[in-house]
């Protein structure tokens, strides 16, 4: 059984800017997997997508998509992949329906032939089918773009930051749709800058500056990257942050939602009383402190600091 995607030692530097986008990048993605690339802008996600969709050539290394070589078997790959680029990539001046029909024709198929695959998504767009794509909201555009990428029943689906700039509700709906597609047997590679979306993938790769920080299931990554951590809050959060950073046992401290996360130095003898005394002496009131487990964003920050 072939892997859906197999990447070996890919390297890519952009000649104009000299920016190193990917460095010795290897990754295996199984057939039928929903795989997430998690990382900020500049991590190399888009470059990787473009290499895998045969849009650009790597400087070094090889990759296969559904068993086809990205360099030699370009036209085979183009028949079986669906791609949704990061930039909004529909014809703004064509209507919802016209866009869909056009992309269906480009892939030598028709909307009717593959309607069952997109039906669940397209019913939401149906009321606006005569509206021009440029006049849709962010969430709706995303759904239409997904329909257009799916219309030829691709075996592998590439989604480059489909949820960026979309509100949490639309994002949740979008991930529900991906779950359904996965059940229909499509392998999906999706990238996102939102760490919380990592939990919705079968496996994830954390990327930073063209390098893989870690690859595993969501739970696996959390499990192996735990460090002693505290969550703290008090009446004056900003002052608390600066004070905590000066505390001798602090490896790192940063705000995290309504609390601050404090990573303790490894091997430093820590006693809770000592921290409480330290803070009370600095005039903090209503201090709440509890031990916590690292979340995915904590892990990312930790791994990122290791790279930098």
């Amino acid at each position: 059984m072939n892997n859906a995607i197999s990447i070996k030692n890919i390297k890519k530097t952009y000649p104009k800017t000299g920016i190193l986008a990917l460095e010795d990048f290897s990754l295996e993605i199984a057939d039928g997997e929903l795989f997430g690339l998690i990382g900020p802008d500049g991590a190399g996600k888009t470059t990787l997508f473009r290499i895998l969709t045969t849009l650009i050539l790597p400087d070094f290394g090889t990759a296969k998509v559904a068993g086809f070589d990205i360099i030699k078997q370009l036209w085979d790959i183009r028949k079986i992949v669906g791609y949704m680029p990061g930039k909004f990539s529909l014809y703004q001046d064509l209507t919802v329906e016209e866009n869909l029909r056009f992309f269906a024709t480009v892939f030598n198929t028709s909307v009717e032939a593959n309607y069952d695959l997109i039906e669940d998504i397209y019913v939401q767009l149906q009321p606006f089918k005569n509206r021009r794509a440029g006049k849709l909201s962010g969430g709706m555009k995303q759904k239409l773009a997904l329909c257009c990428a799916l219309i030829h029943q691709p075996r592998v689906l590439f989604l480059d930051e489909p949820t960026t700039g979309v509100d949490p509700v639309s994002r949740k709906e979008f991930w529900d749709m991906l779950d359904q597609l996965k059940r229909k047997g499509i392998s999906i590679l999706v990238s996102t800058p939102y760490m919380d979306e990592a939990a919705r993938c079968d496996r994830i790769a954390l990327l930073q500056k063209g390098q893989v920080l870690d690859v595993d299931t969501y739970e696996g990554i959390l499990l192996k990257n735990q460090k002693p951590m505290l969550a703290l809050r008090s009446a004056h959060m900003f002052k608390l942050l600066t004070d905590l950073r000066r505390f001798p046992a602090t490896e790192r401290c940063y705000s995290f939602g309504s609390v601050h996360h404090l990573v303790l130095k490894a091997g430093y003898p820590y006693r809770e009383n000592e921290l409480m005394d330290y803070l009370q002496n600095l005039g903090h009131e209503d201090i709440v402190c509890q031990k916590i487990k690292a979340e995915i964003e904590d892990v990312f920050i930790d791994l990122m600091s290791g790279v930098a």
């Binding site: 900020p40 802008d41 960026t164 940063y254 990312f300």
Partner: peptide, 12 residues
Amino acid sequence: EPTGGVDPITRR
């Protein structure tokens, strides 16, 4: 939306 697409450290 000042922090769209920025890594978690820079965001903080």
